[in-house]
Amino acid sequence: MEFIDIVGVWIAAILTIGITSISFKETFFSRWSEVTYLAMGTLTSIVWFPTDLRRYVLERVAPGGAWIPLGPRGGYLFVIFAVLIGIIAYGRYSRKYFWLYRYYLSLSVGTGIGVAMRGFIGANFLDQIRANFLSLVVPGDAYTSFNNTVMCVVVLSSLIYFIFTFKAIENPTVRRISIIGRYFMMIAFGVTFGTGITTRINQYAGRIEFLIIEWLGIKPIA
């Protein structure tokens, strides 16, 4: 391993320990490690900025030195428009020009919603309703029958929990069903919480692996 690599491993190890120490107590060391990590992330974006500018602006405005006003890839008029929209985003930092920032925001949000809406009805609405039309009895497959029944009960009771408009919700039977729905939702939130712990442990496993192998140089026993 070269000297520069050794220095890199030590810096990474110190920062890992520093950020881990926040779990025990917030200290100057932990804050410094955290801020350094954030600074590195910001620095990465800045380093890539000239590449973005070259590839998405300069090479489009004048690919190979030739100016293309309007071509198959938009040409420079579209690019200049996009760059202008990008520049007015910085209006956010000025009280005087804040109104310009709103144009940028409305355009980007509008574009995002427009693109997303095209598939939204299918993915989040129709397909989900279709997926819940399940046979309660699947001949010869008790496990699937049970699963489908549970799914139907969960979907219906959870939906009833969110009905606030009708008088029927005051009916004791309907209220009981909505309570069942609430319990199922609590189970779902519990599952999410549990998987959250798994995720964090899994992410930290990578750092332990790094500390053991690369920093301490210990080889695991196969």
């Binding site: 598939g119 993915a123 397909d127 779902a188 999410t192 998987t195 959250g196 995720t199 899994n202």
Partner: peptide, 29 residues
């Protein structure tokens, strides 16, 4: 959500494109 909308919903019926993904455990539910 975005991948489902742009890959599956738009093109699955047209071209039969498949969509798989690796996400964090916390996102699976």
């Amino acid at each position: 959500d975005g991948m489902v909308r742009q890959v599956n919903v738009r093109y699955h019926q047209m071209t039969g494109v498949r969509l798989i993904g690796q996400i964090l455990e916390i996102m699976v539910p």
